[in-house]
C-alpha cells in the first residue's frame, strides 16, 4: 500500500559527497519506473549537478527564472531521458545566501506543493544554510543521507539540530511565544545551556505550558535515514545506532529505511553518462536502492536480520 500523503521528499544531511544526488537520481528513476510521475529539483547551492547523473547537459533554465521572471515550475522542468521524470535546476545565483527573500521562498514552496500530482524529490546539497533547512522542513518526508564515517556523522548531527532548532523557534512563534527560544538562548550562560537538548529541557522546566508544544513539534519532526557507501555489514549497525541516539538524546523519531553499499559502478555510470539504475539495474546496489525506496513509499523501516 502506498501512502497517499507525503509526495514531497527532501534529501539532506549536511556533509557533501555522501551521495545525496546519487540517491535522489536513483530513487527518482525507480519511482518513475513504477509509472508514477516524478519531478526532481536540484537546489544544491554548492553546485547543482543532478543532471550529470542522467548524462544530460546543464539545463539552460533554472529557478532563477522562477524568482526573477516568474516562470512557472512546469516550464522549467526539462526531460531527463527517463519516462515520467523531469528535472528542475536551481543555481548558485538563485539560491545563494541572501538573494532570495522570505516571501519568495514561500512562493516557491507554494508552487512546489501545487506539483502534487507528482512525486517531488528535492536534492538539498550540503550545508545547513537557512534556505536549505527551510526547504527541508517544508517537505513531507525529511530524508537524511549518512556515510559511515565520523565527519558525516558530525555534520548530520549539526544539520538535524539546526533544523530542529529552527522548527521549534518558528512554531513557538506561531503559538504566540514569540521570543522564548531566542531569549533562552541569549541567556544561556545564566541558565547554563550548552546544547539544544539542554535548551529544550530548560524551556520545559521554566514554561511548563510550552512543553506540550515541544512534544508535538518533536513528534511531527520525523526523519528517514539512508546509509550510503557502506563497506561491510558491520557498517549497517551505524544506521541503527544513529536512530537510537537521535531518539534517546534529542527525542527525534527516525526511521532507518535502508542502505547502499559502496559500488564503483555508480562512478562508472557517471563516466558512461548513463543513469545508474538503468545501466546497472541488476547490481546489488540497485536492488538496495529499490528496497529503501519501497520502504520510503510505504513508511516502513528496513528489516534487519538478527546478525
Amino acid at each position: 500500500m502506498v501512502e497517499k500523503e507525503g509526495k514531497i521528499w527532501a534529501i539532506g544531511g549536511g556533509k557533501g559527497g555522501t551521495g545525496k544526488s546519487f540517491v535522489t537520481s536513483a530513487m527518482g528513476t525507480y519511482i518513475a519506473g513504477k509509472g508514477k510521475r516524478v519531478i526532481l529539483i536540484d537546489i544544491d547551492i554548492g553546485g547543482a549537478n543532478l543532471h550529470s547523473f542522467f548524462g544530460i547537459s546543464r539545463p539552460k533554465k533554472s529557478l532563477t527564472d522562477f524568482f526573477e521572471a516568474g516562470a512557472s515550475l512546469n516550464k522549467l522542468a526539462v526531460k531527463t531521458g527517463i519516462d515520467n521524470m523531469s528535472l528542475i535546476t536551481g543555481d548558485i545565483h538563485s539560491l545563494a545566501s541572501d538573494n532570495i527573500k522570505f516571501t519568495q521562498k514561500l512562493k516557491l514552496f507554494r508552487h512546489i506543493m501545487k506539483l502534487n500530482k507528482h512525486y517531488v524529490i528535492i536534492d538539498l546539497g550540503a550545508g545547513s544554510h537557512n534556505n536549505t533547512i527551510d526547504t527541508f522542513l517544508m517537505a513531507d518526508k525529511k530524508i537524511v543521507i549518512l556515510e559511515p564515517e565520523i565527519t558525516s556523522v558530525e555534520n548530520m548531527y549539526h544539520f538535524i539540530k539546526n533544523a530542529l532548532f529552527r522548527k521549534l523557534r518558528m512554531s513557538l512563534r506561531e503559538y504566540g511565544f514569540k521570543d522564548i527560544v531566542e531569549q533562552m538562548w541569549e541567556r544561556r550562560e545564566e541558565y547554563n545551556i550548552k546544547s539544544l537538548r539542554e535548551l529544550m529541557d530548560c524551556i520545559r522546566d521554566n514554561f511548563s505550558y510550552v512543553g506540550d508544544i515541544i512534544d508535538k513539534e518533536l513528534s511531527d519532526f520525523k526523519l528517514y535515514l539512508i546509509l550510503n557507501k557502506i563497506r561491510s555489514s558491520d557498517d549497517i549497525l551505524i544506521g541503527s545506532s544513529m536512530k537510537s541516539i537521535l531518539m534517546k538524546y534529542l527525542g527525534v523519531d527516525t526511521k532507518f529505511v535502508g542502505f547502499v553499499e559502496y559500488d564503483d559502478s555508480v562512478w562508472r555510470s557517471m563516466r558512461e553518462r548513463r543513469p545508474f539504475m538503468l545501466n546497472y539495474s541488476l547490481s546489488r546496489s540497485a536492488k538496495e536502492v529499490e528496497v529503501f525506496t519501497e520502504n520510503l513509499l510505504k513508511g516502513k523501516e528496513i528489516k534487519l536480520s538478527r546478525n
Binding site: I150, E154, K194, S195, R197, I245, Y249
Partner: peptide, 12 residues
C-alpha cells in the same frame, strides 16, 4: 565511544 557518540560526546 564510537563514531556515532564521539561527535556529540561533549553535549551528550
Amino acid at each position: 565511544d564510537s563514531i556515532v557518540i564521539t561527535p556529540i560526546a561533549d553535549e551528550f
